[in-house]
Structure formats: C-alpha cells, structure tokens
Computed example of a mutant assay.
Amino acid sequence: MPTRRRNDCLPYQEISEPGYAETAARTFTRTWHDGGGSLTLSGPCPRCSCEMEVELVAEVFKSPGGLAGMTEPILCEGKERPHPGSPEGETGCGATWLYRVPDNRR
C-alpha cells in the first residue's frame, strides 16, 4: 500500500479493503489499560494517513475475558484535515476495516 504525503487529501469515501487491516496491524501502537480491559490504538489511517486514536473497551462488548483475540470494526476518525465530500460533522476519510486485537499485550 503506497504511503501518502501529509498534504495529500483524499476525498471522503465509504470504503474498505483487506489491506487496511494488515496495515493497521503493523503500524498502530497498542496501549493496554486496566489489566487488558481497555486498549488505545493509535497510528495513521491506512487509507489517508491521518493520525487517529481509537479506544476499545471490553465491557462494552460484554467480554469478561478482555479484548485479546477479538475482532473490532474500526472507522477512520482522523481529524488532521477535512476530506472533500465528507458528510457534515463527519471526521476522517470514510475508510473502515476489521482490527484483530492480538492475544499478546505488546
């Protein structure tokens, strides 16, 4: 997947590609909280490269064992710059993907 320059601004598009999940798994930083009950993911959107941060909380998903091993839907929430054609009040470029939370806490 090509790297985008920071001043490139893709138009808003509701889109998902298998490569988004692979890229996010490689590039997102994971910060575990509450003994594995919540997780902060941070890194560049695989489509538009805007920096984003996503909070995942196990209790919302009624998972007493925590988040490890779960697959969670992620939506680009980058706020660095507007994307042409985005719906009013919407942030990010519209990209979505499924993120598999690794079993290890690294």
Rank of each mutant, 00 (worst) to 15 (best):
G65H: 04
P102S: 01
S42A: 15
Q13G: 09
T29A: 14
M52S: 11
P11V: 15
A24R: 01
T71I: 12
T91E: 10
I74D: 03
G69P: 06
F28S: 14
H83F: 11
L56P: 07
S42H: 04
P44T: 12
P102N: 02
G92H: 01
G65V: 05
G78D: 06
H83V: 13
S63D: 06
D8K: 12
G85C: 08
P64C: 07
G69R: 03
E53K: 08
P11D: 06
R6M: 09
M70F: 00
R30T: 05
R30Q: 12
P82W: 00
V101M: 02
M70L: 13
G37W: 00
P84I: 02
G69N: 09
L98H: 12
K79L: 05
Y12D: 07
H33E: 11
I74P: 01
G69K: 01
G69A: 08
P2T: 14
E90V: 07
C50G: 07
E17L: 14
H83M: 12
N7Y: 05
N104A: 14
E72P: 03
T40F: 03
E51H: 07
C76E: 02
A58Q: 08
P82I: 05
P44G: 05
F61W: 07
T3V: 10
F28W: 10
P64I: 05
C76D: 04
E72T: 08
E88N: 05
T91A: 10
R47P: 03
Q13E: 13
T31F: 06
F61M: 09
A58S: 11
G36Q: 04
L10K: 01
P73M: 06
A21N: 00
F28V: 12
F61T: 10
E88M: 07
F61S: 07
R105A: 15
G92I: 12
A21M: 01
P2F: 10
K62S: 15
G89Y: 01
E53T: 15
G92R: 05
G69E: 08
N104L: 14
V57Y: 03
M1P: 00
S49D: 13
A68Y: 00
A58P: 12
R106A: 10
I15V: 13
P73E: 09
K62I: 07
W32H: 08
P73Q: 04
W97Q: 03
T29V: 13
T3E: 14
T40R: 10
T40D: 14
L98R: 10
L75T: 15
R30I: 03
A21T: 02
R5H: 09
E53M: 11
D8F: 04
S63A: 14
N104S: 15
D103T: 14
P73Y: 04
N7G: 10
A95I: 01
G94I: 04
S16F: 02
E14Y: 05
L41R: 03
I74A: 02
S49A: 14
T27P: 08
W32T: 06
M70Y: 02
G65F: 00
K79W: 04
S49H: 08
G36L: 04
R100D: 09
Y12W: 15
S49R: 08
G69M: 08
E80W: 08
E80K: 09
A21S: 02
G92T: 12
G35P: 10
Q13W: 04
G85F: 03
R5G: 05
